[in-house]
Write a protein that binds this DNA or RNA. Structure first.
Length: 461
RNA sequence: UGCCCGGUAGCUCAGUGGCAGAGCAGGUGACUGUUAAUCACUUGGUCGCUGGUUCGAUCCCAGCCCGGGCAGCCA
């Protein structure tokens, strides 16, 4: 007999004379003549109720079917006589495969997220984390569906990179040199020409530059992979290792880029609502009561758009006192972004056309000469979830920007070649996958939407 | 990295300069088509670590370690 997943058993349309279930005991309630066992196999949030009658030959072992034990049950699927569930399984045999004694940390009680983080090897067995990681899986799939349906090509950009690209934050070094006894140059510096790749190498902070290569060949591409930032960031929305989706579109300007970002975010929300309804219900009950209403609200109306200059004006006349002063030419601080998304617009906002001096060299310079075609999508509760831009496609302007950013033209010879040969206007953005998950699930800490979080000082499991 | 808060039973927390507490979990028993069942009884402690003040420190002080929140960096 083949195993039936509990998800399928719960959705049965008729009783079954023979069923095989395998899973883990969530809780057991003993009566004098029988026991109720709630069995969960992770296929869905809900467990199924198993009735084990005291007349069963193995009933003496029922006390080993404790919370956390793995169990195999054969029996009949019948309509439940009790309230609270449609179906239940009357066991004919049950076998405790693996016992779980009283030291099992995940007892049937509420646990804090902080405690569960310390037992990241067991927390997927909890309701919350089972739900989070089912949604994570579903959205990863939906990302591919969204882009594939639009004819985008999935590109695997390298994880190890030798280009300190963008100068975007601190990089993790990849090296096989002996740290206690590295080869030295005559001047006494570490001689990286002796290192594995013959030069300094790092973990990628973005696949964008390589994605641009493919966009200028295959037109519409996207990447979806791990990204590494060695920043000493200790916040609920930063991780040292996270996953990022980076579409890159040829013949696309900033407006098209913003359109795609909005369509993409809404698609993912809609997909989660459609395919993870039970899990989202759970989040809205136990994590964030306003979750479903907020997701509907976001789906129902267009995202707001506002230029950086307009944003500065809005902040200036808000009547608020800011911890960080508002001035044209300064970065928008967290408090400013939160105000725009949560209080002023009360909905996701795309802020675009930032001062040139605040942004990286590859962003396209606007006609005013002062701003570049950057865009950030800010969402209530989380802040920046997407950052993107139209890229500078004019060779002379790009080179001028590189000089202004003190970047070596020689190092980026291949990047400038894209403008030297058949250049096209093109755009793209990066969506933080974990931040998107936070938004969809209502989970407030990025460490709780990634299976094994890597943050400064922590790389357990 | 800076500022703030916390660390007491397996978990969540209360508490006091003078015998270490509760709820849940665990154990035993009772009861029940139960639903994180219920009721009674019960086991369980390096009070984060090191040093200092004190007759006496879990409590006060200092340093360190760990966790969390916020800020910066960003997705």
């Amino acid at each position: 007999m083949s195993r039936t997943l509990i998800k399928d058993a719960l959705h049965a349309t008729a009783p079954m004379d023979a069923i095989l279930l395998q899973g883990w005991v969530r809780t057991r309630r003993d009566a004098k003549a029988f026991s109720f066992i709630e069995l969960n196999d992770g296929s869905c949030l809900k467990g199924i109720q198993v009735i084990a009658d005291a007349s069963l030959p193995d009933y003496a072992h029922i006390t080993k079917a404790n919370t956390g034990a793995s169990l195999e049950v054969r029996g009949k699927l019948v309509e439940s006589k009790g309230q609270g569930q449609k179906w239940e399984v009357v066991a004919e045999t049950f076998t405790v495969i693996g016992e779980a004694d009283a030291t099992y940390p995940l007892q049937k009680k509420g646990h804090t997220l902080e405690f569960l983080r310390e037992i990241a090897h067991l927390r997927p067995r909890s309701n919350l984390f089972g739900a989070v990681f089912r949604v994570r899986s579903r959205l990863a799939y939906a990302i591919h569906q969204f882009f594939q349906a639009k004819g985008f090509c999935y590109v695997h950009t390298p994880i190890i990179t030798a280009s300190d690209c963008e100068g975007a934050g601190e990089l993790f070094r990849v090296s096989t040199l002996d740290p206690l006894n590295p080869p030295k140059t005559e001047q006494g510096a570490i001689d990286y020409t002796k290192d594995f790749f013959g030069k300094q190498a790092y973990l990628t902070v973005s696949g964008q530059l390589e994605a641009e290569i493919f966009a200028t060949a295959l037109s519409n591409v996207y990447t979806f992979g791990p990204t590494f930032r060695a920043e000493n960031s200790n916040t609920s929305r930063h991780a040292s290792e996270f996953w990022m989706i980076e579409p890159e579109i040829a013949f696309c300007d900033l407006a098209g880029n913003m359109d795609l970002a909005e369509e993409f975010v809404k698609y993912l929300i809609r997909d989660a609502k459609e395919h993870c309804a039970g899990d989202l219900d759970f989040f809205s009950k136990f994590v964030d009561k306003d979750l479903l209403a907020r997701l509907d609200f976001v789906l129902e109306r267009p995202f707001q758009r506002c230029s950086y200059t307009e944003a500065i004006e809005i902040l200036g006349r808000s009547g608020k006192t800011w911890e960080h002063p508002v001035a044209w030419g300064d970065n928008l601080q967290s408090e400013h972004e939160r105000f725009l998304a949560e209080e002023h617009f009360k909905c996701p906002v795309t802020v675009y056309n930032y001062p040139r001096t605040l942004k990286p060299f590859y962003m396209r310079v606007n006609a005013d000469g002062k701003t570049v075609t950057a865009m950030d999508l800010l969402v209530p509760g989380i802040g920046e979830i997407i950052g993107g831009s139209q890229r500078e496609e004019r060779l002379d302007v790009l080179i001028e920007n590189m000089r202004a950013h003190h970047l070596s033209e020689k190092e980026y010879w291949w990047y400038t070649d894209l403008r030297r040969y058949g250049t096209v206007p093109h755009s793209g953005f990066g969506l933080g996958f974990e931040r998107m998950l936070m938004f969809v699930t209502g989970v407030a800490n990025i460490r709780d939407v990634i299976p094994f979080a890597r943050t400064p000082g922590t790389a357990e499991f």
